[in-house]
Amino acid sequence: MTVLLETENLTKHFDLGHGRQVHAVDGLSLAIEEREIVGLVGESGSGKSTFGKTVLGLHERTAGRVSFQGEDLPASYRQQDFRRYAPHMQMIFQDPYSSLNPRMTVGEIVGEGLKLHSDLSGREVRERSAEWLQRVGLEPAHMSRYPHEFSGGQRQRIGVARALILEPEFVVCDEPISALDVSVQAQVINLLDDLKASLGLTLLFIAHDLSMVRYVSDRMAVMYLGALVEVGKANDVFFDPQHPYTRFLVAANPEPDPRTERRRAFSAIQGEIPSPINVPPGCRFANRCPQAMPQCREQTPQLIPLQEKGGREVACHLFG
């Protein structure tokens, strides 16, 4: 397998003024192989979306490196950089309501990428847009309608068509189904699945629904307060979590089965995710971790592969 996209110590801080900074993403290294689906999970505020956007150049990165097909991507994108990379890397957004321009028709929204990034004629662009609408399960006749005329699930399909019409190699899906009803979530997941198979897509799938991420992804990366705490095969991470935080996360994930839930010997993780403005020294999870040792409050643990767990990477002093 060849690596399609790789980040090395990717860091994104937002400046709040007065010398204060939000440490949204702090030195995150992740390699995504071709045709792989990597699920990125974590609580809100853990920096998942910021990571996705920084990878695509939608945020200027503070430090670190991003390479795509072996080529380093610029730290800050200029107009021509977007022109160059947009056909290869795209994003599907969480909120199908606010991510579509209400004043553009669906045809214009879906076709805009082609208009900017190809030399097809207006008519060819329209034909391709119509074809893509069909591909995502809408009608070519919907081209002249506006986003408000569609339901949430349909809008998400429009978002998918818009992102995929340029046939990118890499797509960041930022919580693509969180805003949708259960019955519609499966429609969008199956659609992404079909398109992944036919186009050979590589996906970074950001979500907080562990069951869905486990189901969708090949590998799962767990993020906490701007850093990765565990990375491994999705099933392994879900069924045999190693990092204390991942264990809590899996234990907190409710299963749609009252018998399982009754049997669950459950203790919710105490406390809340600390503010990314004052990141504690040492392990970021130490203040909520029942197994924290003195060392955890001083030294920041690095991701290390566990041989006995098939190369699972865990950032925790318990495994040091």
């Binding site: 907190a252 459950f266 919710a268 995710i273």
Partner: peptide, 9 residues
């Protein structure tokens, strides 16, 4: 979030 959800439930 799931962990906070678990606390509330």
């Amino acid at each position: 979030d799931v962990t906070i959800q678990a606390q509330i439930l």
